[in-house]
Design a protein around this nucleic acid. Structure first.
Length: 458
RNA sequence: GGCCCGGUGGCAGAGUGGUUAUGCAGGGGCCUGCAAAGCCCCGUACGUCGGUUCGAUUCCGGCCCGGGCCUCCA
């Protein structure tokens, strides 16, 4: 199966060929830990989780290294701590924990490594020194700046030339910059700001250098895939690319740059600055299953904008009901130990076409519902579950999916069902329907089947 | 202003130079005491105007509309 991925650098789908099939390496930009992750932050996590799963399927689980960083030094963190009076370490550790919990609720696997910026200050300093030495950076007014003019190719990833950037500039240029396009590698810290000793005094890193330093540390100078949200193309990834390329004297850095589209709300980009966001946690607290949120995030192609609404999450939940319904109906059938279905692998191999993969899963689901014998059922059930594993879906016990959250009422529900079965046996359908209506009013739907009566939460 | 994306049936959302996904919602049927679930059938969509072509939703160009980037952002 040929894997094809869209490369932001060439703006085309390209056949993916790993540098080393024994160790395929991917880096994805993780969160700045100052606040709960909103659904827009969750999108790349889920999208690249599917890619991680696919790569593990293709190259073997032990032959993929996935690094996703935690940015735990950044001005927004400092601002948040100052605002609330909470210690910085407390803000970052609390937020990191929340991030882990929320992403786990969305069914995302842990990355192979999760480097923290504050653990890599020495590597950043070393890289900055190297950039200064090679004439790509300069010290000015306690800052170290990257010299954009020192890199003729600057702007290739985002498609912006330095001249355009300056022409369209929306912000005032700091006086210590030699050129308006230059960006900060290192900046001085005041006594109350977090800081580390460096050749340029006590200070802290600029935003972009951490990813250059950490990807090199954990994946090497040259690796396969670098991912993130579209909004990172500029300036973050453009600058990261510039730093790494210049520090490595032009040797290759990343083979494939991948960027997921925005989550939008009523057509507009979701962002913290616009305030039109909702957090993953909010949705979970509203009672939406994490798996339904995950499916909603995978319901559109990753490069397209995605409008996340409660309606869409609801529809995703209904789709999961359909899958789990098929699995529940074959609960007593052992699934075959199947490889993921070819159609699903093919869809995902075509630049992560998750909607097509989902369509294929629905075809399998329908076939499973129709299957006439245990062998066929076992085969299709195995195929569906294998597809689910690749997508990070259908990992729950169907009974838990349908009955989870019903708390301690299960016993009483079973008692009422037994009473209804007795009434039906006695052909007392009025009483049977009364019991069913009573349960329906509590959000419990009954299903009478050949093997008896089952129930689920509506 | 410069540079990028998009506009598909009621909704969501893939895809394709000719056979027109998938899910939801809707209509009809089978099954059921009645339902639910499941299964079957149905609805022929691709912004607009031109061009290329035997044939275009799919390729090319103009236009209209929406969104994004141009140093806060996943």
């Amino acid at each position: 199966m040929t894997l094809r991925l869209h490369n932001t650098l060439t703006r085309r789908k390209q056949v993916f060929e790993p540098l080393d099939a024994e160790n395929v390496r991917m880096y994805v930009c993780g969160p700045t830990v100052y606040d709960l992750a909103h659904i827009g932050n969750a999108r790349p996590v889920v999208v690249f989780d599917v890619l991680f799963r696919l790569l593990r399927q293709v190259y073997g689980a032990d032959h993929v290294t996935y690094a996703r960083n935690i940015t735990d030094v950044e001005d927004k963190i400092i601002a948040r701590a100052k605002e609330t009076g909470e210690a910085i370490e407390s803000v970052t550790s609390r937020t990191t924990q929340a991030y882990h919990d929320d992403m786990a609720a969305l069914g995302a696997l842990q990355p192979s490594v999760e480097p923290r910026a504050t653990d890599h200050i020495a590597q950043m300093i070393a890289m900055i020194e190297c950039l200064i030495e090679r004439g790509h950076a300069y010290v000015a007014d306690g800052h170290v700046l990257f010299s954009v003019l020192s890199m003729p190719d600057y702007g290739r990833l985002s498609g912006h030339s330095r001249d355009e950037l300056i022409a369209g500039a929306r912000v005032d240029v700091a006086p210590y910059k030699k050129d308006p396009a230059d960006f900060v590698l290192w900046k001085p810290s005041t006594a109350e700001q977090p800081g580390w000793d460096s050749p340029w005094g006590r200070g802290r890193p600029g935003w972009h250098i951490e990813c250059s330093a950490m990807s090199e540390e954990h994946l090497g100078e040259h690796f396969d895939i670098h991912g993130g949200g579209q909004d990172l193309i500029f300036p973050h990834h453009e600058n990261e690319l510039a730093q790494s390329l210049c520090a490595h004297e032009g040797r290759p850095f990343v083979n494939v740059w991948m960027h997921n589209g925005y989550v939008v709300v009523e057509g507009e980009k979701m962002s913290k600055s616009l305030g039109n966001f909702f957090t993953v946690r909010q949705l979970l607290e509203e009672g939406w299953p994490g798996e339904a949120i995950r499916l909603a995030l995978l319901s559109g192609h990753y490069r397209q904008p995605l409008d996340i609404t409660r309606d869409k999450i609801k529809e995703s939940k209904v789709q999961l009901d359909r899958f789990y319904g098929a699995l529940r109906a074959t609960a007593d059938i052992a699934p075959s130990d199947a490889a993921p279905p070819e159609g699903v692998v093919a869809a995902l191999s075509d630049d992560l076409n998750t909607p097509e993969a989902l369509a294929e899963m629905h075809r399998i689901g329908t076939a499973l519902n129709k299957a006439g014998n245990a062998i066929e059922q076992g085969r299709l059930k195995g195929a569906l579950l294998a597809a689910g594993r690749l997508m990070g879906l259908l990992g729950q016990d169907p009974e838990d999916w349908f009955k989870g959250g019903s708390g301690g009422e299960a016993e009483e529900i079973e008692r009422l069902i037994a009473a209804r079965i007795a009434a039906r046996k006695a052909k007392n359908f009025a009483e049977a329907d009364r019991i069913r209506d009573e349960l329906a009013a509590r959000g419990i739907v009954l299903e009478d089947g050949p093997q008896g009566t089952t129930w689920r939460l509506a």
